[in-house]
């Protein structure tokens, strides 16, 4: 990065049209032929949910699903995945319906600062697509490439187990928060729950 030698301008590799299906939508953008998928997704496609943590394939924050397989977008040239189907965190939800893995990460505390969360969600979703009753060990193997500094992983594993239960149909998925939900009792309940210490 630092040196006295004048280095010729790096940035003029040929530009090419890169196409792929990102979260179900066909995308065509003009990118340099040596562009890294992470840069393309963040800077050109606009899926800013894909996070850049290290650029070296060590943190897993940039994990995206490529044709159903989780891969690190920072170690992947855009050209390598031309015309493939890419799923980022933005593509997990079905409209306003959060995927079970998303609602469970919120519910079980699998996300604290949230920066690593998109990567974890993708890795976990890829696992659940293959296996809806994973053991804790299998989950650990699925997320071993993802680094989380906040949670200590335990609540992440709980979240994935919770989502697995929804996938198996044992637990019902949560309704989207944006569904119409008029206040059931705008006036407050007739006979309220007595709070502690206020019993008659």
């Amino acid at each position: 990065m630092v040196g006295s030698e004048h280095i010729e301008m790096i940035p003029t590799p040929a530009k090419k049209v890169w196409s792929a299906e990102v979260n179900g939508t066909p995308v065509e953008v003009l990118v340099a032929s040596n562009a890294v998928l992470l840069d393309v997704l963040r800077d050109k496609v606009g899926t800013l949910g894909v996070k850049r943590g290290c650029d070296l394939g060590t943190c897993g924050c940039c994990t995206v699903m490529i044709d159903g397989t989780p891969r690190l977008s920072c170690l992947c040239l855009a050209g390598q995945v031309q015309d493939s189907a890419i799923t980022t965190v933005e593509g997990l939800a079905d409209g306003a319906h959060l995927a079970p893995i998303q609602s469970c990460f919120a519910e079980y505390g699998g996300s604290q600062c949230g920066f690593c969360t998109p990567g974890f969600l993708i890795s976990a979703q890829a696992l659940l697509n293959e296996n809806d009753s994973p053991t804790d060990k299998e989950i650990a193997c699925a997320i071993e490439g993802n680094l989380c500094r906040c949670t200590g992983y335990q609540q992440i594993i709980d979240s994935i187990q919770g989502a697995a239960a929804i996938h198996r149909g044992e637990v019902e998925a949560a309704k989207p928060a944006s569904d119409p939900h008029p206040d059931p009792h705008p006036e407050g309940p007739e006979e309220p729950n007595m709070p502690p210490g206020h019993a008659r």
Partner: peptide
């Protein structure tokens, strides 16, 4: 105290932003 939320395990209020990549 009204027994509404304190002491209860509730999701972080910004967790939906985080799990949808909107944070």
């Amino acid at each position: 105290r009204t027994g509404t939320t304190v002491g209860k395990e509730i999701p972080l209020v910004d967790s939906n932003a985080k799990v949808t990549g909107q944070a």
